[in-house]
Amino acid sequence: MADFWGTVNNLRDQLVRSSRALTKKDAKLVSISSNDLYLKSNYQDFQRYTEVDLAIAADVEATLPSLIEASKRLVTADRKRVFEERGKKFAAAHAQALEQARTTATYAWDASPISTARLSAELWEVIKDKDWASVGGGAGRLWNVEKQYQTLLGGGAAGVGSGLPTSVGAALAHRKYGRFCVSIQNDGDFMYAPGAIWTAAHHRIPLLSVMHNNRAYHQEVMHIQRMSNRHQRGITNAGIGTKIEDPNVNYAMIARGMGIYAEGPITDPKDLGPALRRAADAVMRGEMALVDVVTQPR
């Protein structure tokens, strides 16, 4: 591959993309998921093929309770002891991981831009005593997820632009249960369909949207930098079309313009907790609220 064509077509985005089976060879795999229904929907979601023996297109939430009970009836006393021992190991590993996450969060705790760990911890403090549900963004290890409706999986393709409308739609689904919905909203994603805020305001959809504002389409920044370096071009131009600055976007102003409560940009970590609590009060009144937080890149 000495020529140009050969070089370009042999350069991979990632150096390694591998997989390995975690199951025993004779294990039967059965999936229960609504993902298979996407194939006929307006919004389709194709990813790497997951090879299973039986794929059941069904509602997981409706299926799991009876499936769990049926599985429990098959558990023998010996297996039960094995499960309990395994559970103790998992609990110990969880405690250790939480402790590690807390230690990791201390680094850049008082930094500005605000660390993502600080944002996560401050937000957890606001929601932990509520019947909460995350409808966007990763909560991280500092949050204690105990119920199946408290997390929302991503779009699958790591696409940009679906986060805000997805969070509004999910918050609408949670509204009838009275749950406190929260999302960590990426700024680059926000730029694609900000009109979803107006939709939430118009339909009185309660949602706390917290901007993870690193002032960039950050996954693109890193990708461009990586490829530029690999091509020995340097990164001088990597910010073109990837950074969202000059001017910085005032997301709170945009949000207020569409009729919802908003604060920010928050740059001092000491201001974050009080701002989140005020925004949470607005959400409890049945509105959407947005807090724009200027953050570290990741």
Binding site: A108, S115, Q296, P297
Partner: peptide
């Protein structure tokens, strides 16, 4: 800082 954070605290 894009990968390591402004305080070199890590990230990506």
């Amino acid at each position: 800082y894009q990968c390591h954070g402004f305080e070199a605290q890590g990230g990506a």
